[in-house]
């Protein structure tokens, strides 16, 4: 069964000049429509055996000699298709900078400290209700070279497959109330009316007493274009 189309009113354009790197890297010719077949409606399947026991807990999976510095958070939510059906047993990968705004990557030259006890990468598989859950450290803002005095709002990167190559998604989510959001050309590249979907909700119910603040971020992927009843 074909999947819903990529909704270009929800996704950023391939060239968005305020985000300067898009100018030489985004394709400029129209995409060629491709009727979905088996090549598009299949994709890699990752089982629980592809996940290590600490992969979902970034407060512990990079520990060398102590706990990572920063504010512990819980990040959870559901992965749904665009008809509202949960997507169980699907891989969710995340990566982020540390609590000082520094990525654990040789190319990150920002003069902020690395944390020897924080790697910044994690993954998990959604449960039967499509729910995922990570423990991590709240990432910080950091400067970048896009324009004078440019700062990225704090964010966590996400990568998802859903059940096919057609539902593939790489994105970033942000934190509520961040004053940098209206200034960020990457956030603003998303059409107005859709970009707010990238902001997580704070939740006192998800917050764990005495341990970690809770944030909820639901993710909606493309899915089969009809319910099984209609098929």
């Amino acid at each position: 069964m074909p999947y819903t189309a990529r909704d270009w009113d929800s996704h950023p354009p391939l060239v968005s000049p305020d985000y300067k790197s898009t100018v030489a890297r985004g394709p400029t010719r129209p995409l060629v429509p491709l009727p979905q077949g088996l090549s598009e409606l299949t994709g890699p399947v990752f089982g629980h055996d592809s996940i290590g026991p600490l992969d979902h807990d970034l407060t512990r999976n990079g520990v060398r000699n102590g706990e990572p510095l920063g504010e512990r958070i819980v990040v959870t939510g559901r992965v749904l298709d665009d008809r509202g059906r949960p997507i169980p047993s699907t891989l969710v990968e995340i990566w982020q900078c540390n609590s000082a705004g520094r990525y654990n990557h040789a190319a990150d030259q920002h003069d902020a400290p690395l944390d020897p006890n924080f790697l910044g990468g994690g993954r998990c598989i959604t449960d039967d209700a499509g729910q995922y859950r990570f423990y991590t450290i709240k990432p910080a803002a950091y400067p970048w070279g896009n324009h004078h005095n440019a700062w990225r709002p704090a964010h966590i990167h996400l990568s998802l497959f859903g059940n096919s190559m057609a539902s593939r998604l790489v994105t970033q989510f942000y934190f509520p109330g961040d004053p940098l959001l209206p200034l960020d050309p990457i956030f603003n590249s998303v059409p107005a009316g859709a970009r707010e979907r990238l902001i997580a909700d704070f939740s006192i119910d998800v917050t764990e007493p005495g341990f970690a603040l809770g944030y909820v971020f639901d993710i909606v992927l493309r899915g089969p274009d009809a319910t099984p009843m209609e098929a």
Partner: peptide, 12 residues
């Protein structure tokens, strides 16, 4: 439901 918008994979 509205699709979650894509964002760049970034350099890191």
């Amino acid at each position: 439901k509205g699709q979650t918008p894509s964002q760049t994979v970034g350099p890191f």
